[in-house]
Write a protein that binds this DNA or RNA. Structure first.
Lengths: 213, 213
DNA sequence: TATACACTAACATCAAAATGTGATACCTCC
DNA sequence: GGAGGTATCACATTTTGATGTTAGTGTATA
């Protein structure tokens, strides 16, 4: 089995050393770099011309730049590394900020070393692992939304018109596409605007693109 | 420890009975209903006025209605149940369809019974668990997109104008909001359109809402 | 310092959109 | 069979949007 190379960025010395000892003492892993902030981590990467880690364990609450803020910079230097967040924060905002920045796994600090090891292995194999509470928040992101207000139902024909507008067509082009007169298009649009309580193409497009229709 | 009530919907008799035996033989769990299709599952729920399961293990490939198609109907009768998908499919389309329908966990069928048990426990505690390969696809949904083409950078002032348009304001209203003349607004918009190679508010709004700016 | 560029603004023009009224025709539902 | 809704179209008006040119002012950078 190949060894998995790691880096650890964590400011709490207790946690940091615990991780270092745990992974350092396991021949399956090799801890290449340990730092207590994003800034020092990047410096160390520059200084030592060492092999690059495959996986990075990254805290969020750090002196200086936060872990999340640091992700873009880290990914620039380590484009192939997988980033595992390891943090006490469980609020959706931070979770999604981290994932959107490019983290591929997110663990709470209560996670046992064994589970962290499992996460590292999974990530190394191209998978991922998230703490249960985090995973729940992530799946809930997808679950049926509370319906962004009454889907003021438009008729089929009205939806044809809406589609034309969203496609960037002028009234004239919509008329041609649907083979009706431009005045009919105007009439439809007036009714649509009234039904939705709007008064410009812009608002209509926003609603559609936001999935509110 | 409270017993966790389960239902199983799975057409493959081997898998079904294996699950039934495993969970049935563990006093921590109670298997209330077992069915081989969504239709028969719902019938059984109606027929037997039994306690409702907290957690449902649901296959996707089923005779008749697919597991995913069945989720909305199931959630109507079991609004409080947590649905764990258990399936061979690993394509993003099915994963996201299931999650969007309201599933709260997604396991591949290779998952060991012990891991399935872990998933059930996690879900029962209000968390979630996904197979590593599934979890990876889910986090990748969030990860930085391949940058939908050059982020043609607009200036701060231009972004102010864009914001106004996206907010559904007319040129006149934007001018008032930014305390500049309407001609200046026009001038900015002309430059913005040129920079982005577009020629209408509609296209601009579409780009912004799609996060291409 | 000279060049480039962002922001501001006025003036102008044509195309398009927003809004209104009125009218015919076709459904469906009571 | 009449009431109400949808779809169709015409005609008309006002407002907005899209595009262009020109130009003064400030700032940053080569």
């Amino acid at each position: 089995m190949e060894t998995i190379t790691l880096a650890i960025v964590e400011d709490d010395p207790v946690v940091r050393e615990s991780l270092q000892t745990f992974f350092g003492g396991n021949p399956q892993f090799e801890v290449l770099t340990v730092a207590s902030s994003v800034e020092t981590f990047l410096q160390k990467l520059d200084a030592e011309a060492q092999p690059l880690p495959e996986i990075l364990l990254l805290d969020i609450q750090l002196p200086g730049m936060s872990g999340i803020e640091g992700i873009p910079g880290i990914r620039e230097r380590l484009p192939d590394a997988n980033i595992i967040m390891l943090t006490t924060f469980e609020d959706s905002e931070k979770i999604f900020a981290a994932l959107c920045a490019g983290a591929c796994s997110y663990l709470t600090k209560q996670t046992s070393l064994l589970k962290i090891r499992e996460a590292v292995l999974n990530v190394s194999r191209g998978g991922s692992y998230m703490s249960p509470s985090i995973a729940r928040k992530v799946v809930e992101y997808f679950s049926p939304k509370p319906k962004k207000q009454a889907n003021t139902t438009l008729t089929d024909r009205q939806m044809d018109i809406v589609q034309g507008i969203v496609d960037g067509l002028s009234y004239k082009m919509i008329a041609a596409r649907l083979d009706i007169s431009i005045d009919t298009v105007r009439s439809h649009i007036m009714h649509i605007y009234r039904a939705l309580n709007i008064n410009s193409k812009g608002e209509l497009i926003k609603r559609v693109v936001n999935g509110e229709l």
